[in-house]
Amino acid sequence: MKNKQIDKQLIKNLAIIVIVFAAIEFLLYGDLLTRQFRSLLIPVCINVILAVSLNLTTGFLGELTLGHAGFMSVGAYTGALVTMNLNLPMIIEFPIALIAGGLVASLFGVIIGVPVLRLRGDYLAIVTLAFGEIIKSIINSLKITNGAMGLSNIELHGNYKNFGYVFFLTVITIFAIKNMVNSRQGRAVCSIRDNYIAAEAVGINVSKFKVMAFVVAAFFAGIAGVIYGHNVGTLKPTTFDYNKSIEILVIVVLGGMGSIKGSVIAAIILTILPEMLRSADEFRMFLYAVVLIAMMIFNSSQIKQRILSSDIFLKLKKTKKEA
């Protein structure tokens, strides 16, 4: 009985993914999208990957991390250097770049994860912030990364023409994180968030799971970085500063800590919103900030609660359960 339910859920999810993908491909190949929206497809995917992976550490592990852009930059630079130095066809070098970017980023996840094991809460947040800055200044002073000038002319393997790959990677990320959270490991990670002492008391190896969450999150952030580099074609250390980390955190908070679906929706909204406000010129970022405040207030307000508990919504939920 239970298996059947899971199967049904899986089929439903797959169906949604296929429909979304087909719809976007149709729009893309039919040339029905404006170029502005076409160029937003990849950034949306990148932000989804970043937000979902940050949600693992911030939402499920319950540790505020402010260095996610650092992992992203490590992945971006590794991936870019791989494709710039390998002269292989895209189909071979791009996957190598993705894996290399992810692995190097997760290596940094270990480096950061181990020393912060003893820290929690605010202390950990500050340490991750510092690590993000350290990564930025290392990239800034290395020769291979071309210092402050950054890398340019990175092959555009990750732009809209290869949307299929990027979409596939995004789906994999969502599935991987979702399944991980629902697995034994994921429950252990959540238990650390809910009650650290109790988790330790029942024999959960807190350090191990903490590092694991960091490493997995870093891996996917690295992949997002690789796609970013191969979409824009240039990389500069200043792109991956503290603001970038905050931007990702904002998506996670807006979508709801520990909600993967929320992260996906928030990533889509927050990537497209500033572009929709282009006509406002100088007031664009001001309006964006106002909308952000309004959304945050709405998200934690009674109005939302009331809508969620209103008759229509409850009935909708009921029919969903029955079906």
Binding site: T34, R35, P43, N231, V232, K236, D281
Partner: peptide, 21 residues
């Protein structure tokens, strides 16, 4: 027609595409 890019490369790409539109 002048578009904002916040001095970041990725925003410049969308700004460019929006100009092409």
């Amino acid at each position: 027609k002048f578009e904002d890019d916040q001095a970041t490369p990725d925003k410049a790409v969308t700004a460019y595409n929006s100009l092409m539109d």
